[in-house]
Each structure stands twice: as C-alpha cells, then as structure tokens.
C-alpha cells in the first residue's frame, strides 16, 4: 500500500476514535475505556514477547500492583491519585527490575516460571491481606479527577494510550529497538557482537512493568473498585490472547487484538462463561494457522502482489 494511502487511513481512524464519545452511548463508552486499557497492556506485553522474546506471565500482576499501590496510598494517606499513580508505576518497575535481575541471566524458561509464580503470589497476597487490600470484597479507590465523567476519562485514557504507543514506536525504531530485535533473533550471535543481552532484556522488562503498573493504576481509578481479579491468570491470558490474535511483534497487532476481543466479548455476552474458552481456542487456531495474527493476515492480503523479497523495514535504517 502506498504510504499516503496508509496515512490517510490512519487519520480517518484517529478521527473516528477521537469522536467516539459523541457516537457511543454510556455503556459502549465504558467498553471503549476498557479497550484502551487493554491496548496499553497488550502493547507493553508485546514489547517483551514480540520484540525481545521473553514470555512474562506477570504482566497482569504488575497492573494490579500499580492499581493497589496507587489505590492504597490515595485512600490511606489521602494523596491525590495523580501523584500516587506514579508511585504505583515506579513500584511495579522496581519489582520488574528485581525479577528481571533475578532470572533473566538464566534464560527463557526461568523467566516464565518465575513470573508465573510471582503472579500467583501477588494474587494470593491481595486476597489474603484483607486489612490492607480488603481481599475479595475489593478496595474502593478515589476517582482520578475528583469528579465522575466517562467522557473526560475516555480522553485521558486516549491521551495516555497515544503517548505510550508513540513512545513504544519510537523505542522500537531506535537503536534500543534494534538491540531488542537482535536478542530476539539470536542471543548468542548478539552477544558475540557486543550486545549485553541480559541488560537489554532487563531494560525491556522494567519498561514494560512500569507501563503495566501505570495502566493498572489508571484503570483502578476509573473502576473505583479494584479486586484481586486484576492479577488473575485469566486477566493475564486476555492480554496474551489479544497480542497473539492481533499479531505479536508488530505495533498495530496488540491494538487490533485488543479491539477485536473486547468488541467480540460484548457480542457474546450471553455465552458469558464460554468466552475464555472461546478466546483460548481462537488463540490456538491463530498460532497454528495464522501465526502473524490479524496484522499478519492483512499484510499477506495486501502484499501478495508485490515482490516477496521486498519488505517494509521497521527501523529507521533504510538502504
């Protein structure tokens, strides 16, 4: 597709997104806000899995850490959520850094199993430390703005999503992004040409944890009631499924996946208890038959007529 066409499409798409509060009713605006949360979560998880090849199962747990830290601080110390939000993100980043340093030296399996364990532990602690977290009852947290407006919250979420996507796009196109991709492609070869692979992974892991923590806090101050469900493995699974169904290792994939699954879950509401199962089956089918996800399929359709050897490079270095 021509570059100008692509830009035009992008502008139209953004235009529609910005106008959403005027097009949607209250309920669907709520869905749109949730979708934006998932867009951030899936995009930041994709930075790990899609660009550095690390499968973390603690992404939802980091969001829960962000939400609970921010919530608890704002409730108990009456600090403005605008400030506690940052605390939540920083604490999530610190946990990310610690976990990263602990297990990234030892390679893929260890990261996955440690993050899975960590995520279970966060879930258990939130459930059990009733006096601080209110357990399964859920913790009531103040509104970010001090007043309740879905439209305002939608624009805040949208702005944050833009900033994060823009940041991720810049990061991936930067020299750091190239390092990430070299580690994803071949760790041994990357270290043989001077790339500190452990450091690269720890950086990616910390950045993604910080983003998850921030998104979690933002989400919590919108929901006004946060529950241990935030850190559950089902929540983690949603993030993973969105990334895979949308297309891992691409910028637009997680966005497409998050929108697709959120809208789909609204339409299959009547089959409530089947939807995780359905998403699981869809993800397995996608991995098996269309590993590039929605974005991969789209590219296959639009690029099939052109020279297969010619590809669109993602980095800024073009010959």
């Amino acid at each position: 597709m021509k570059k100008s066409n692509k830009n035009l499409l992008l502008v139209i798409f953004l235009g529609i997104v910005v106008c959403l509060p005027f097009l949607l009713d209250d309920y669907w605006l709520h869905v749109a806000i949730l979708t934006l949360f998932y867009v951030i979560m899936a995009s930041s998880w994709n930075l790990l899995a899609g660009y550095t090849g690390q499968v973390s199962f603690a992404h939802a747990a980091f969001a829960a850490i962000g939400a609970y830290i921010s919530g608890i601080l704002s409730v108990q110390m009456s600090i403005s959520p605008l400030i506690t939000l940052l605390f939540g993100s920083v604490i999530a980043a610190i946990f990310g850094l610690g976990l990263g340093l602990l297990c990234l030296k030892m390679g893929g399996i260890y990261l996955s199993l440690t993050t899975l364990g960590f995520s279970e532990i966060v879930h258990i602690i939130i459930k059990n430390e009733y006096e601080i977290t209110r357990g399964t009852m859920g913790l009531e947290v103040p509104n970010l703005l001090g007043f309740y407006s879905k439209t305002a919250y939608f624009y805040i979420m949208l702005l944050v999503t833009f900033i994060i996507i823009f940041f991720l796009a810049k990061l991936i196109k930067s020299d750091h992004g190239l390092k990430f991709k070299s580690v994803l492609n071949d760790e041994l070869a990357a270290s043989s040409i001077g790339i500190d692979t452990v450091k690269v992974r720890v950086i990616a892991f910390t950045i993604s944890s910080a983003i998850a923590g921030f998104a979690g806090g933002l989400y919590g101050h919108y929901l006004l009631l946060i529950t241990p469900e935030m850190s559950s493995l089902s929540q983690m699974f949603m993030i993973l499924a969105m990334t895979i169904i949308g297309g891992m290792g691409t910028l637009s994939g997680p966005i497409a996946g998050a929108v697709f699954l959120q809208v789909l879950s609204e339409y299959i509401r009547i089959f409530g208890k089947f939807h995780l199962l359905l998403f699981g089956v869809i993800s397995l089918l996608v991995i098996k038959f269309a590993p590039g996800g929605i974005v991969g399929l789209y590219r296959k359709i639009t690029q099939s007529k052109t020279d297969p050897l010619k590809i669109e490079t993602q980095s800024k270095y073009d010959y």
Partner: peptide, 27 residues
Amino acid sequence: HSTYGNLMDSLIITFILSIVLQNIALI
C-alpha cells in the same frame, strides 16, 4: 509438535492450553 526448537511458542501454547482446559472443566 510444531513448536520444537521454539521455546517461546511452547510456553505460550501450554499456557493457553491450561486456560482452555480450566474452562472446559468449569463448564
């Protein structure tokens, strides 16, 4: 079978499988 040599795929697939099986059991 198709994931041999690709650790990441096998991690992701078995994780998804665990969610699928849990929900089948639930239903």
